[in-house]
Design a protein around this nucleic acid. Structure first.
Lengths: 340, 340
DNA sequence: CTGAAAGCGCTTACAG
DNA sequence: CTGAAAGCGCTTACAG
């Protein structure tokens, strides 16, 4: 493989001149620049990434820690990954991916050995055990998901409180007075998925403020349990006219359940979910939903991370905690309650 | 950050001795080994990956080129990625991930700049335009998917011919005489998804050999088109008693379609799909299916790739082309044809 | 505008 | 069993 030394020799200049001609970091005569470029083409030269990283202490690589936790919906994670990966590439960075169950190990390896310039953490828990390691690392970090302690890292998340309020408000305005909310399984919450609480508590508060009833339950995340759970719920609350779904598996199972019960949305039941548009398309879900914007969150996290990496924002400047406002995507699954 | 020089100083030895004490590549006195280990612990030393890569020309990184093509089912790709990523980690390698639409660019960048020791290509097309680049690269490559020309790379794929035969044979034995096969969209085939042809042609040949009827069609990959297409198919072939599905989107849409038609499998219609068990669980699919074994294929590809990388198989030894035999996972969706 | 040299942090023959 | 030195392939002050 050709080195910068080969390029220099062929171009008849010194290695430093060859390097500068390629980086443009100092003035180079037109003649020399041309000879260097020609040599590069002739030799098919590409800089050795490891050598460059060693010299510059920049790897142009971002570490991406994805976690595929049991009972969480793997396909949903993919959208975040793609948002991160594609944005990184646009900004000139490659992605070092870890899918290890033990994220702490992967994180330590990547940061300690200087394989990456920065880190993106996905699926962040309330009390995420990767955070202390990330804070101690010399590289900056960005999270998708809101932990209890946001110090030292950039944080991006959907505004789940607002999402909960929006769902309740939307159905209340349509005339609904009794609603059911199906959240993720309780052990997702216990593991640190505080977003489940955030949405649910805000929804409950909003319902209370509006004087309407909201039955909030945790649903399973697996088939066929989640289908049975949905049947049980609809049996238990025959007067409920609106269904709120903050549980991807439940959303995916709902069409079958409604068919089995001979129910149609919105004629018999109004339905609002919380998932991404991409998810809705993949699963052919016909329900209006709060867009969870995974690609947008991934993009934002990488953009801010790169600003940190490249020093466009100083190390003393405060870290960002940014919430994406939920948007309701209308797919026509809500309307006036039946009997109205 | 501590360097090997710091370790050496603290341990009171030379840098080379410190290095050897850690690698174990030459005999070291117990005393020195202990002092070096202590120094490592005290300083929290981790080798700089870039420096090591430069010195050894080994990065311990594998490049993973995933392609998310339009109209292909993104969640299915995730299973392959996880198989690759997890196996790589078990063998001591990290994953450099590319999700770029232009895989050729990503491939060239990774190989030319020596960021990786080897490459895994996912979603390989009949005439994949990344292959010439991979063959020219100094790093070995492994594919999941069968191209027309397998030279110079390790190839792993499901035996789609056998899968097609198995599906037909299974239903024929149960007494079915008229079947419908729904494949991926035709433009997936045109783009190079030869596996679609392989399964379909083998199924047609098997049906012919057994003297039964098989209607083979290409289905859409998107909602709601695929649902409508399924309805159209069942309308068009009212006497068909068995449905073969080689199209993930169609499989995901089928439960709804059958409910809408008040059909039950296998009482009214026997159904056999071709997808992974993980996929079936995620989408709550109750149909028997040919297991496409994405995790297993990913594992095999990485294992063989690492054997090449580490020189356990010589550069002159022939490359591997290995097919995974399809296994039929019985989920009870097939039986005797209705009216029998 | 260009070159010679130092240095990034490792590993590994070479010498003893 | 250990050390001094060279080298991996870059970049970037330092000098001219």
């Amino acid at each position: 493989m050709a080195t910068i030394g080969d390029v220099a020799r062929v171009a008849g200049v010194s290695r430093s001149t060859a390097s500068y001609a390629l980086s443009g970091k100092r003035a180079i005569s037109e003649d020399v620049r041309r000879r260097v470029k020609d040599a590069v083409r002739e030799l098919g030269y590409t800089p050795n990434a490891g050598a460059r990283a060693l010299a510059t202490s920049q790897t142009m690589v971002i570490g991406l820690l994805a976690q595929f936790l049991e009972d969480e919906f793997a396909p949903a994670m993919l959208q975040y990954m793609l948002g991160v990966s594609n944005t990184a590439r646009e900004l000139g960075y490659d992605i070092l991916l870890s899918t290890e169950a033990d994220g702490r190990n992967a994180l330590r390896r990547m940061t300690d050995s200087r394989m990456v310039d920065g880190i993106v953490l996905l699926n962040v828990a309330e009390d995420d055990d990767r955070l202390p390691i990330l804070r101690d690392a010399p590289q900056p970090g960005a999270l998708v998901g809101l932990p209890a302690d946001c110090s030292g890292v950039e944080v991006f998340d959907l505004d789940f409180e607002e999402a909960g309020r929006t769902m309740v408000e939307h159905l209340h305005r349509l005339g609904h007075r009794e609603l059911v909310l199906v959240s993720q399984p309780e052990h997702v919450v216990e593991r640190g998925g505080a977003y489940v609480w955030r949405l649910q508590n805000a929804a409950l508060a909003e319902a209370r403020a509006r004087g309407i009833t909201l039955h909030a339950v945790f649903g399973p995340a697996q088939q066929p349990e989640v289908g049975r759970a949905l049947h049980g719920l609809l049996d238990a609350h025959p007067d409920a006219t609106g269904l709120l779904i903050n549980n991807e598996a439940a959303a995916a199972a709902l069409p079958t359940v409604l068919h089995e019960r001979r129910l149609t949305a919105p004629a018999d039941l109004s339905v609002v979910g919380r998932y991404s548009d991409e998810f809705a398309r993949t699963f052919s879900l016909p329900y209006s939903s709060i867009e969870s914007a995974p690609d947008r969150l991934g993009r934002m996290a990488v953009r801010e991370l790169v600003r940190r990496i490249e020093g466009q924002v100083g190390p003393d400047e405060p870290h960002v905690v940014r919430f994406v406002s939920p948007e309701l995507v209308d797919r026509g699954s809500t309307g006036a309650p039946r009997g109205d």
